[in-house]
């Protein structure tokens, strides 16, 4: 087996304070390797976003260990965590989180600017990734002049511009119609395989199953199941599979 790029062991996360304190994660083990698209599925409130934030070095665990490319995350301060993020991790959000005052190209450029890649080379790179996601003809458009699917593809371009080894996506298709949802998932699968990155996407959406190499299920702060999916399955079969699982349960 290949060495994991991102792994967590026994991760516990408590959120909130005092009476409102919630154990969102209760001892999670997970490792991600390159070249795979992993889906994280589970009911609302099960801790998916919390786990994603911890894997993405945005939150630190209450206990347990995280390693990014073999580097231990524990004990790092906010600035060091930011450095880990910009070196290794790309993010995609449900509501895209694009900068409304920047064009598609500039939205990607600023992600490169943040990691210190500036100037002409950075502009070329931004253009390159936007072409990769099929937006070569939308470079100058502002988010308000792009469809939801196009906006999410800009976000994908932004996430991969700096060539991170891990891409984390929280419900990337939730705000999209079926067609655009499929397009974005296909894109994420391609990023995982063709660019040899590790992609983890949180999702509720059964339509996305067909693109996964692996599906991890989380419930109430614990990983409750995991399945590897044979390559090349198409979406309908997968829906069947889900149904069968539900029937078995």
């Amino acid at each position: 087996m290949t060495k994991p790029v991102l792994e967590c062991e026994n991760v516990v996360k408590e959120l909130g304070k005092g009476a409102g304190k919630v154990r969102a994660l209760k001892g999670v083990n997970l490792s991600l390797v390159k070249g795979e698209l992993t889906l994280l599925m589970g009911p609302s409130g099960s801790g998916k976003t919390t786990l994603l934030s911890i894997l993405g070095c945005i939150l630190t665990p209450t206990s347990g260990t995280i390693r990014v490319e073999g580097e231990e995350v524990a004990g790092k301060g906010p600035e060091e965590l930011a450095e880990l993020r910009r070196k290794h991790i790309g993010f995609i959000f449900q509501s895209y989180n694009l900068f409304p005052t920047l064009s598609a190209l500039e939205n990607v450029r600023i992600a490169l600017d943040v990691i210190g890649r500036k100037g002409y080379q950075a502009a070329l790179r931004a253009e390159e990734v936007l072409r990769e996601v099929g937006l070569g003809n939308r470079l100058k458009n502002y988010p308000s002049n792009l469809s939801g699917g196009e906006q999410q593809r800009v976000a994908v371009a932004r996430a991969i511009a700096a060539s991170p080894s891990v891409v984390l996506a929280d419900e990337p298709t939730a705000a999209l119609d079926s067609e655009n949802g499929h397009a974005v998932m296909a894109l994420l699968a391609r990023i995982a395989k063709e660019q040899n990155r590790s992609v983890l996407a949180v999702t509720h959406d059964p339509r996305t199953l067909g693109y996964a190499d692996r599906v991890v299920r989380i419930e109430d702060g614990l990983i409750v199941g995991e399945e590897r999916r044979p390559q090349g399955l198409d979406a309908p079969e997968i829906t069947d599979l889900t149904k069968r699982r539900k029937a078995n349960a």
Partner: peptide, 12 residues
């Protein structure tokens, strides 16, 4: 937007 920048790994 600043939170997004921060998530993208920008230094403060």
């Amino acid at each position: 937007e600043f939170a997004t920048l921060r998530a993208l790994g920008s230094s403060s």
